[in-house]
């Protein structure tokens, strides 16, 4: 039986790993770009562009007719896909131009301006995936203000964790603000992610979604991937580093890899757990049920 014939809670299966890869790529890319610009790490700014590039590639593969993808910006006033496509396009345009013009002497002075423009565009890109899912009103797990905030916080935490690891491994210039900010971004990420689930409501669809993430087939992604690997382990490593108890390069690398995988796992769990409410109403049949129960 295809899911379309189910009458109870149905899990949305229109988006999957490819779409998650796209959400992850653009989120991590934007977060990394912001963190890298603030930390002045040019190499990571380039890496951030590559992440967003991966996201765009995944997005194009996801489309049924990618040759018409330019049409996706036609309804910026209404659709979050249009807004996201526009912002990602602008971000990539500014970031790549900024990267290129810095090597061309006559126009090199434009590079900081272009980078600033890319920085500004990266902010909506951070929350785009969350806003897109939120606009799907049929899926209540994705409703409310906390999912865009959680997705944004995940992206920022990933960006800062990667920058923190990079600085620890390759850059001798100390940045005393980086470690507490990264720690703070992880705590913020945990707070918004927890708030999102806690405030998602109690409808049948939401209950099924949460159940699936907490103890169903998405437990590995959500609990182990999203929370343990993505938040708890980086948080523990950052806390140890903050307390000067541990300062190893390997652990810093572990923090970044766990964070990046955890970010993906969290998004994938949320995307796949989205559920529609039961289509068959109980009310018209309730009376009959009562009669039966009385007998």
């Amino acid at each position: 039986m295809t899911p379309k014939y189910l009458t109870g809670v149905r899990f949305a299966n229109h988006f999957g790993v490819l779409e998650t890869l796209s959400f992850w790529g653009e989120g991590v890319g934007a977060g990394l770009f912001i963190a890298a610009v603030l930390a002045g790490e040019r190499f990571l700014e380039t890496a951030a562009i590559a992440f967003v590039g991966i996201a765009v590639l995944a997005l194009l593969v996801h489309l049924g007719n990618p040759q018409r993808s330019w049409r996706a910006v036609r309804r910026v006033g209404n659709a979050w896909v249009s807004r996201g496509t526009l912002m990602i396009g602008l971000f990539l345009g500014f970031a790549v131009s900024g990267f290129i013009v810095q090597f061309i002497a006559p126009v090199a002075s434009f590079a900081p301006l272009l980078k600033l423009a890319a920085f500004v565009c990266a902010i909506p890109v951070l929350i785009y995936a969350g806003m897109l899912l939120r606009s799907m009103r049929a899926i209540r797990l994705w409703g409310g203000p906390y999912l865009p905030l959680a997705f944004g916080a995940q992206a920022v935490a990933s960006g800062f964790t990667v920058v923190w690891t990079y600085v620890k491994l390759f850059d001798a210039v100390p940045r005393p603000w980086l470690q507490p900010v990264t720690l703070g971004s992880l705590l913020l990420c945990a707070a918004f992610s927890a708030l999102h689930v806690a405030r998602a409501g109690k409808s049948a669809g939401v209950r099924a979604s949460v159940e699936r993430m907490r103890s169903g087939d998405l437990r590995g992604l959500f609990v182990i991937g999203g929370w343990l690997l993505g938040i708890a382990i980086p948080l523990a490593i950052l806390t140890l580093a903050q307390a000067n108890l541990e300062d190893g390069a390997i652990l810093a690398l572990v923090a970044s890899f766990c964070r990046l995988y955890g970010d993906f796992a969290y998004r994938n769990a949320i995307v796949r757990a989205g559920a529609y409410e039961p289509v068959v109403p109980t009310a018209p049949y309730a009376l009959f049920r009562k009669v039966s129960a009385a007998k």
Binding site: A12, H14, F15, H62, N65, P66, R71, M136, A138, G274
Partner: peptide, 10 residues
């Protein structure tokens, strides 16, 4: 239609 499936999800 570009086949983004947003409508299907919505």
């Amino acid at each position: 239609c570009i086949g983004c499936r947003s409508c299907a999800l919505a």
